[in-house]
Design a protein around this nucleic acid. Structure first.
Length: 216
DNA sequence: ATCATTTGACCGGG
DNA sequence: CCCGGTCAAATGAT
C-alpha cells in the first residue's frame, strides 16, 4: 500500500538494483565469452555484441532516470566535473565527496549539477571483473589520482590505429575504512571492485583472430 | 623479430 | 600552479 513512499528511496533502490544487474551481467560475460571463443569465435563475437547491448540498455536506463529526471541533473556519468568543491568551509562535505569517488552517488540529491555532456559520452559501471568485456585493450597510461589508493589505468582499443577510438579507464575502488576485510591476503581481485568508464564507441570490425586466454 | 606494458615527461584546462 | 589525461622511449614478454 505504501508503495512510492518518496522518490528518494525508490530511485535509490532502483539505482542499486541496476548497478547490481550490471555487475552480474559483467561477471557472466567474463565467464562466458572466453569459453565461447574457444568454441566458435563468430558466436563469441555475437555474444559480445549482445552483452554490450544489454549493458548499454542498462546504462541508458540509468542515464535517463537520473539525468532526465525531474529537473535534477545528477552527474551519474563520469566526467571531470565531479571534483568540484562547492562549499569551501564544509570539510565534511569534502570528505564525502572524496569518498564518493567519481560515481555511484546517491540518486536524488539536491545537488543539481550542470551537465557537461558535450562531446564526451561516457558510460561507467562497477564490476569485479574489469577485464574481458569482449574487446581487447591496450594500456597506454597509468596515473595516481589525487588521494586515491590505487592508480587509474588508461586503455585504448587495440585496433585504435585502424578503426576503433574506444577508450576506457579502470580504477580500483578503495577497499578500506569500514569495509569488511574478507581475506587479509596480499589483496587480490577477489572482492575488489573496479570502476570502469568507457569512452567512445567500438567500431572494431569482426572476424579478426583474437588470441584470447589472457584470463587472469 | 614484434608487440604490449611500464613509467616519467609533457601538455592543456581549471 | 596543480591535476589528470596522453605520449613515447625503455623495458618486458612471446
Amino acid at each position: 500500500m505504501d508503495h512510492s513512499k518518496n522518490c528518494d528511496h525508490g530511485l535509490a533502490e532502483i539505482e542499486a538494483l541496476l548497478r547490481r544487474e550490471q555487475e552480474l551481467v559483467t561477471q557472466l560475460r567474463a565467464l562466458i565469452l572466453p569459453q565461447l571463443h574457444n568454441v566458435d569465435s563468430g558466436s563469441a563475437e555475437l555474444a559480445a555484441q549482445l552483452f554490450d547491448d544489454v549493458i548499454g540498455c542498462s546504462t541508458s536506463v540509468v542515464s535517463k532516470l537520473f539525468t532526465a529526471g525531474s529537473g535534477a541533473t545528477i552527474e551519474l556519468i563520469d566526467d571531470k566535473s565531479l571534483v568540484r568543491k562547492k562549499s569551501p568551509s564544509t570539510a565534511a562535505a569534502a570528505a564525502i565527496d572524496d569518498k564518493m569517488d567519481e560515481q555511484a552517488k546517491p540518486s536524488c540529491i539536491v545537488g543539481r549539477k550542470r551537465r557537461r555532456n558535450d562531446g564526451k559520452r561516457s558510460r561507467s559501471l562497477v564490476t569485479n571483473v574489469p577485464h574481458y568485456d569482449g574487446h581487447q585493450w591496450r594500456k597506454y597510461g597509468q596515473k595516481n589520482i589525487n588521494g586515491r589508493q590505487h592508480a587509474r589505468s588508461y586503455y585504448r582499443c587495440t585496433y585504435t590505429e585502424r578503426n576503433c577510438s574506444a577508450t576506457k579507464t579502470v580504477q580500483q575502488q578503495d577497499r578500506d575504512g569500514g569495509g569488511s576485510i574478507y581475506s587479509a591476503d596480499a589483496g587480490e581481485d577477489q572482492g575488489a571492485k573496479y570502476t570502469v568508464v568507457y569512452y567512445g564507441d567500438h567500431t572494431c570490425k569482426a572476424g579478426d583472430n583474437i588470441s584470447n586466454n589472457i584470463i587472469d
